[in-house]
Design a protein around this nucleic acid. Structure first.
Length: 258
DNA sequence: ATGGCTGAGCTACTCAGA
C-alpha cells in the first residue's frame, strides 16, 4: 500500500499538477496539506473521476487538510486536538492492514515565525497539545502513522545552512525537542531511519532561486509507531513535482507499507 | 536577506507562508 504526503499550497491552484502526479504514482492514500479552501469549494469531482474519495477538513484561504483515498477510511475525525485558533490542521482516520487497525493522522503544524510573537507561542502550544493527545492515543492503539508538514527541521543535516535556521521557528532547539519528544514516545522518523546520512529536502522557497541552488529543508515527515516498523517497505522523497511549472513549494514524500 | 515569490480574497493591496 502506497501512502503519500504532500503540502500542495492550494489544492485548486495545483489541481492539474496533483492529477498528473496521481496518474504517475498511483497512491492508495494521499494526505494533502495547505489546501487553502473550505469544503464547499474543494474539487471532490476531480478526485472522484480518477477513483478516489475525498475527506476534507477545510478552511477559507489558509491551512486545511484532506485525505484522498482509494480504500475505505473509518472513524474519520476533524477534532483530534482542540486548536487554540480553530484552524484546520489535523484530519485523522483508520484503515485495516493485515488485521492491524492503523490510525492515520494527517497534520499541518503551524509555521511559528517570527519567533518572539504570539505565532511562535501558538506553535509551541499546538505541538504540546498534539504530543499530549498522541500519548493518550497510544494507550488505545499501538499502530499509529503520523504524516504531514511538521514545520520542523529535525537535525542540522536536514537544512542547506543550519546557522540560518537555528533561531528560526523551524530550527530552534526548543522546537526540534518537540519532534524528539514524539520519537521518544516510541515513534520513528522513517526517512531518517532508512537514510542515515542522506541529505534530501521536501521544501524549497519560491524566491531567490532556492530550488535551482538546492537551498531546501526536510520538514515533511512520516512518523510511525514502533509496532508498524515491520510493515515498512520503502520511503522516498519524489522531487519531480517540485521541478514542474506552477509547482507547490513542497514536494511529496512517499511511503510503501504492506 | 523581517523577504527576492506565490496564493487567496478581491479587484488594491494585505496576510501568510518557512
Amino acid at each position: 500500500m502506497k501512502i503519500i504526503s504532500w503540502n500542495v499550497n492550494s489544492v485548486r491552484a495545483r489541481i492539474t499538477n496533483i492529477l498528473e502526479y496521481i496518474k504517475d504514482t498511483l497512491p492508495d492514500i494521499l494526505f494533502l496539506q495547505e489546501i487553502k479552501t473550505k469544503e464547499e469549494s474543494f474539487p471532490y469531482e476531480d478526485f472522484k473521476n480518477v477513483g478516489y474519495e475525498s475527506h476534507v477538513f477545510g478552511q477559507k484561504s489558509y491551512n486545511g487538510v484532506a485525505i484522498i483515498s482509494k480504500v475505505k477510511i473509518e472513524n474519520l475525525k476533524k477534532d483530534f486536538i482542540k486548536d487554540d485558533l480553530n484552524q484546520a490542521r489535523i484530519i485523522s482516520g483508520e484503515i485495516l492492514l493485515k488485521k492491524k487497525k492503523i490510525n492515520l493522522i494527517n497534520i499541518y503544524a503551524p509555521n511559528g515565525n517570527p519567533i518572539n510573537t504570539d505565532k511562535y507561542e501558538y506553535k509551541k502550544n499546538w505541538l504540546k497539545k498534539f504530543i499530549t493527545r498522541i500519548k493518550k492515543e497510544l494507550g488505545k492503539n499501538s499502530n499509529i502513522l503520523i504524516a504531514g508538514d511538521f514545520n520542523i527541521i529535525p537535525e542540522e543535516i536536514d537544512v542547506y545552512d543550519f546557522k540560518r535556521y537555528e533561531n528560526d521557528a523551524l530550527g530552534k532547539l526548543e522546537i526540534r525537542k518537540k519532534f524528539r519528544e514524539i520519537l521518544n514516545l516510541g515513534f520513528n522518523d522513517i526517512y531518517r531511519l532508512k537514510n542515515k546520512n542522506k541529505q534530501e529536502y521536501t521544501f524549497w522557497d519560491y524566491f531567490a532561486g532556492s530550488w535551482q541552488k538546492n537551498y531546501g529543508m526536510r520538514i515533511d515527515h512520516f512518523i510511525l509507531s514502533n509496532n508498524l516498523l515491520e510493515n515498512v517497505t520503502s520511503i522516498n522523497i519524489n522531487k519531480k513535482p517540485r521541478s514542474k511549472t506552477k509547482p507547490s513549494d513542497h514536494t511529496p514524500i512517499e511511503l510503501e507499507i504492506n
